[in-house]
Design a protein around this nucleic acid. Structure first.
Lengths: 178, 178
DNA sequence: CCCAGAATCTTGACAGCGACAAGATAGCTC
DNA sequence: GAGCTATCTTGTCGCTGTCAAGATTCTGGG
């Protein structure tokens, strides 16, 4: 759209969007380059030109994700809201989130990935009393988001009647960092 | 071994063991039924007889995993030690852990899986002041184990010089449940 | 002892996948 | 408009999961 159309439109962005959608719907294992190509209306080998291989595409998605996460964290005023923002990001962008922490699916030494990761990492560490507290805060929200996303909390007495946002606030309110 | 040997030894257990090993080494995506069969010295279709399909095998691994986790949690005297035991389990049995919370890879309504999950869930919820505190504790250790396993903590100033056990203790010590 | 029947494993086949190579087509630059 | 590059297509290969059909071994009752 923005970059105008080459052969068949902005294929690169289209593939990323469809991929995120597909991961959110069926998990990352349900993503096949050939199916993405089909959905975008191009031939089965077209994605390779933009991303090299499957890792390349998922790495690009992870870079996007860390950028979005950093923005979300930057907009939060304090530690508590930053924690909630982390959860909100994971739930709002499940397709990105699912890939960001799956190193086995990514190009491990992509510099753009390292940069994006570092940038969001700064926000994660800011505003806590101590390094262990920062680690605890990150682990807490990351664990919650992962468990919720996997449906592991479905059996819990709490999980049924609350939306995840409210549940996350409740959880964060149940602990104190010191 | 225990069940004696049929055609070619105790294939079922052998496949599960090799699978756990392979997941720990190269991630769950690196597991192929054909390669497992090769490593066990049987034909490519032999695993299907014991597990049906790939989901069946991974589901069995998850059932095993939840059993091991429940045992580990049961042996811990108090909440704090239970938290550490959770982390220790995840690090000691990465092949099992990686599969247990990946619902997309498992048979979603396997009754044995549901049972095993419920059994370990009981221990997770026991000994905490309130349901939100239990959720926080679980999220905390689950997040930490996930992040550590993915190498996401490698950049942290803390992570370099400590072993994960000690780091987990440090982290758990940095918060208070109320 | 042996022989049905079941459990276990093998062989063979098929479609879908990621990756690579080689060629076609469209857009850009000078 | 000629060359050049980016973009996409076509064709192929080996690998995978899954299914079907057959072979082999174990087991239990006469």
């Amino acid at each position: 759209m923005a970059k105008s159309t080459y052969h068949h439109g902005d294929l690169r962005a289209a593939l990323l969007a469809v991929a995120a959608e597909q991961i959110a719907a069926g998990g990352v294992d349900s993503v096949s380059l050939r199916e993405l190509a089909r959905r975008a209306g191009v031939s089965h080998a077209a994605p390779a030109h933009h991303f090299g291989d499957r890792r390349g595409l998922l790495t690009e998605l992870a870079v996007e994700g860390f950028g979005l996460l950093a923005d979300a964290l930057a907009a939060a005023p304090d530690l508590r809201e930053r924690a909630i923002a982390y959860v909100r990001f994971a739930l709002a962008h499940p397709g990105h989130f699912e890939v960001m922490f799956r190193r086995d699916l990514l190009r491990p030494d992509d510099p753009r990935l390292a940069d994006a990761r570092a940038r969001s990492g700064e926000y994660l560490r800011s505003g806590t009393a101590s390094p262990p507290a920062a680690l605890a805060a990150w682990s807490l929200v990351h664990g919650f988001a992962s468990l919720w996303r996997e449906g592991a909390l479905a059996g819990s007495a709490l999980a049924t009647d609350s939306d995840p946002q409210a549940l996350a606030r409740l959880m964060v309110g149940a602990i104190r960092f010191e």
